[in-house]
Simulated scan of single mutants.
Amino acid sequence: MTIQIAKESRKEAIASIERYCRENFPEPVSGLEADGLLSFFLEEIGPLVYNKAVADVQERLQARVMEVDIEVHEEAFQYWPKQGRRR
């Protein structure tokens, strides 16, 4: 699965890469070079980040599913005990 980002987000990411390179390296990069770097990172490292996020969500959902029985549990055979309290 290829990770895609919205066009506007891509523009902002490219500008951020250009700025980072300008402020941290002796040679700045062009927009085209920054776009290439972004594509590389999305293809090479993006799946790692994506898979970690999915695993984190699965873990949280699993924890919530384990709590469902506590939140919605109802005791069976409560008719007679309730009747006894009413008398």
Rank of each mutant, 00 (worst) to 15 (best):
I3E: 10
I3R: 08
Q4W: 02
Q4M: 01
I5Y: 04
K7G: 04
E8W: 05
S9E: 14
S9I: 07
R10W: 09
R10N: 11
R10D: 03
K11P: 00
E12T: 13
A13P: 04
I14H: 12
I14N: 02
I14M: 12
E18D: 02
E18C: 07
R19M: 09
Y20E: 08
C21M: 14
R22N: 13
N24S: 09
N24P: 00
E27Q: 14
V29G: 03
S30M: 09
S30F: 10
L32D: 14
A34D: 04
D35M: 08
L38Q: 04
F40S: 03
L42Q: 04
E44W: 06
L48K: 09
N51A: 06
K52D: 14
K52S: 11
K52H: 06
A53K: 08
V54F: 05
A55V: 02
A55C: 01
D56M: 07
V57K: 06
Q58W: 02
E59I: 03
L61N: 07
L61Y: 10
Q62N: 12
Q62A: 15
A63I: 08
V65W: 03
M66F: 07
E67R: 12
E67A: 14
D69N: 13
D69L: 04
I70Y: 12
V72Q: 05
H73D: 05
E74F: 04
E75G: 01
A76F: 06
F77E: 15
F77Q: 12
Q78T: 15
Y79I: 13
W80Y: 14
W80N: 10
P81I: 02
P81L: 07
P81S: 07
P81N: 09
G84H: 14
R85D: 10
R85N: 10
R86M: 09
